[in-house]
Design a protein around this nucleic acid. Sequence first.
DNA 1: CGCGTAATTGAATCAGTTCAATGTCAGTGG
DNA 2: CCACTGACATTGAACTGATTCAATTACGCG
Lengths: 229, 229
Amino acid sequence: MHAALLKPAKVCDGSIRLGAPSSRSAFPPLSRRLHQGQPLFHEGDRANRVYEVAKGVMRLARVQPDGRRQVIDFAFPGDVVGLPADERHTTECEAITDCDLLVHRCPSPTEHDGNPVLHRALLDAALQEIRRLQNHFVLLGRRRALEKTAAFVALLLDRISEPIGRYRMIRLAMNRADIADYLGLTPETVSRCFTELRGRHVLALDDANTVIVLDAARLRTLADGDTGL
Amino acid sequence: MHAALLKPAKVCDGSIRLGAPSSRSAFPPLSRRLHQGQPLFHEGDRANRVYEVAKGVMRLARVQPDGRRQVIDFAFPGDVVGLPADERHTTECEAITDCDLLVHRCPSPTEHDGNPVLHRALLDAALQEIRRLQNHFVLLGRRRALEKTAAFVALLLDRISEPIGRYRMIRLAMNRADIADYLGLTPETVSRCFTELRGRHVLALDDANTVIVLDAARLRTLADGDTGL
DNA sequence: CGCGTAATTGAATCAGTTCAATGTCAGTGG
DNA sequence: CCACTGACATTGAACTGATTCAATTACGCG
């Protein structure tokens, strides 16, 4: 396993956010390129690798027989996807932009001996992810549409925003349907919420996929459930 | 750490379901008794122990500043609660019936050396929990009230039901508000759903806290989103 | 028995969905 | 260069499932 695993910070599906890939490792991990729309793995697939996102955005989701979909998480550069349960993947995973991945071997459950440092890192990462999922729970179960949307933008603001003048800009890699399925809403409602946030001068939309946060404080207040009135 | 940890099966908050407590261990863990309504820990508390439920039911929840609450999980005998992230508990945890707990030491993140078998067990348990939380996600985000309620009863049917004649019976330790906060509904809606399920002869209510499942197949069909019409 | 808590039921309201129409933009080919 | 196309986003209007608030009803316990 690659040395980057030593500094885990995040998990999805279970997955770990590793530190920036260490370029001084004597055994750099394999890398893999994925184009927009390509699946990395499906729910139920046998799992013996974990993948660190080096570039791009991946989407983790559960799909039901009737087609309803719940997006579990988005994985950004530094995140890792593919940690299995019972040696199987438990979600669908797809590249929503072109992606570069670093491929790591995933230790099988029978390896008690393996690398104890690795095991510890994976455990910590999994515990972090549990907390992240718990945060997402509150969002999904106990918030109104506008709060959900504000919270989602606030999340991206912390994770992937770039400065632009005295504001910050977010490039949305995901479309409205992806956001809707992450928040438990319809695309139409997400769109209306973006319009509402724009009307309140909390954010501006350059084009549909480029958000400029005009009032981060108010955004966070909205995200926490205050109406601000 | 107690030998029971060797057979983990479930996590909440992160938490592990250990095997039934092994009575032949030379070093039995401390045990602790909790009365109904007593909190075990709060969100943000320092964490250095994990707790295996030996008897009773515990409730794990996130509470927001404005009082809204999301129940993350219920822990039944065999489950363990208290696995921390960053050495802190990430949820509120309270006994909703009188409980007996087995107290285990929780290894700190700095212990790379510790018991590798233990670490591996904790990791597997955490990965299992991630999958469980993912299941709960679909429930919370992508299902109607009746489906949610049916799915909840189906869950308890698999976990804690007892045979009664040719049917199975479930003793609900949690009240309607707890169920509502688990499913992202109001107590009134949960009540109406129980009434509806009773009207469809899927289940019968002896008293408000005693469910008898009359038609398990139909219950599961409803839980999966089919209207059955 | 009577009190307090929890559950149920009812009626009105409302947030979000659904369905349909319109608008926007990038890519393609005449 | 501009018209056409297809995918996605936005907007509108009607509908509906769940919530809210209020009124009973049922139940456990002193």
